[in-house]
Design a protein around this nucleic acid. Structure first.
Lengths: 249, 249
DNA sequence: AGCGCGTATTTTGTATACAAGATAGGCGGC
DNA sequence: GCCGCCTATCTTGTATACAAAATACGCGCT
């Protein structure tokens, strides 16, 4: 067991002057705003690492090793793992340790249609509620998408697409819808590496976005819903095809 | 701090012969099958207590007291609380303790339409897939519902209704849909006491169920979806009215 | 008598100690 | 030489110890 990234200690709340042997209390410049509890910070850090593929699906999460790496004890780390497990990002098998959750094609086949339904609803509500200002903001993001497609930058397209869907949710202003979609999106991030391979679909994807923007401008809620739903189902179809061609190899 | 229910100790895995002073290791006859880890058992026990209103929304959850009550230490209890918090059943405010989550009318207004969408989808898929055997089982549950309406037994009606929706999900056979709906239903249980006050709606509710069964028998997926969706929105409307009349008092 | 401040108490958050289950590795048997 | 069992080691699960934040309480002050 050895870790290359030595400097990933989480931020302790300081003022701790008990003689504690092997626990340096360095705080790291690059760290996010203090989430106050180490377990909460660990949750966020682990989420980040999973999203960024520093921790890959299926990987074993050794408590002692991870705790050491984060500069905390096993207690808050375990609390973090339990929370991530409740979120579905981590699978815990009793007495046999925690692993980063894996996302099979079957899971995508289950999740995407649900997302299609929910995000379709978001689009519908957004079409009804969007102010001119909202539309301008969405147009702006859409323009950025166009830019990245032209540049062939899948990675940034993916991220901006994410932001776009986020912005749309803001417009729809339905906290619970946002919450449920957010939960599912966290899980879909586990298959991010696969989505990034869909460079060939960027153009189609963009066209669907154009159709969506069109519907939003026209305040055509039903069309917006249908377009968004279809957008996600097409995404799934592309992933399915990717899986099938990959399976042949 | 004193507890009346003394005998609610969770099941330890035994074979523990270290001299541990004040920790009796009685196992309880009525306990569920051993979930192996105390934290997991605590999660289930707390979920149960919340669902059954032994722990009411807003109530403070004192770690030491609860741990003592369950006959475990704070470590697994805290892990349980973190999991419940990730599920949304418990709110944890850093350094200020955990409370049973509260469900405002606004939350119901957010959750029910989502449930309507998702359960509508369940009904649609179930209508397509139901075998004659499935239909017989559903008919059976429906008959039980009729019985409880006739008897005016809201409590049992509620439970059987729950089972009915569960059975329908089995028929639809969509694990992820089931999962998402399950998450939301756990939350809705927080307002169970309110739903139980809807005795007057039992008849309407039953009629909607009849219409659903009819659509299922006819394999009319689209009607099944619409009926189920409407069923849930009506439920919400009834709860809303209840809240309004209650607010006047 | 009411209010504020300082101290005592409670309660959370984290680290550590320890036991039992799981794993791995070696030894003997076939 | 391969398989199975037994032991040593590792890892998880739980309890406990302790520190700091939060809260409660009482005292003095105005």
């Amino acid at each position: 067991m050895q870790f290359t990234h030595i400097n990933s200690m989480l931020i302790r709340n300081m003022g701790n002057n008990r003689p504690r042997p092997a626990m340096s209390q360095k705080r790291r410049a690059s760290s996010r705003l203090n989430a106050s509890s180490l377990s909460q910070q660990a949750v966020e850090e682990l989420r980040r690492r999973i999203a960024s593929c520093q921790l890959v699906p299926g990987q074993r999460l050794d408590e002692a090793a991870l705790a050491a790496e984060l500069g905390i004890s096993r207690t808050p780390l375990r609390e973090a793992l339990k929370m991530l497990s409740a979120e579905g990002l981590v699978d815990i098998t009793p007495r046999r340790g925690a692993h980063v959750a894996e996302m099979a094609q079957d899971d995508l086949e289950g999740i995407f249609p649900i997302m299609a339904l929910l995000e379709g609803e978001v689009a519908r509500e957004a079409a009804q509620k969007a102010t001119p200002l909202d539309l301008r903001r969405l147009d702006q993001l859409h323009a950025t998408l166009e830019k990245y497609v032209a540049a062939g930058d899948v990675d940034r397209y993916y991220e901006t697409n994410y932001q776009f869907h986020d912005a749309l949710q803001q417009v729809a202003g339905n906290p619970w819808l946002q919450h449920v979609i957010g939960d599912l999106r966290k899980l879909l991030r586990l298959s991010r590496h696969r989505s990034l391979k869909l460079a060939g679909r960027m153009n189609d994807s963009l066209n669907e976005h154009r159709a969506l923007m069109d519907a939003l401008h026209k305040r055509d809620a039903e069309t917006a819903r249908r377009v968004m739903k279809r957008h996600l189902l097409e995404q799934l179809a592309a992933l399915r095809q990717l899986a099938e061609t990959a399976a042949e190899a």
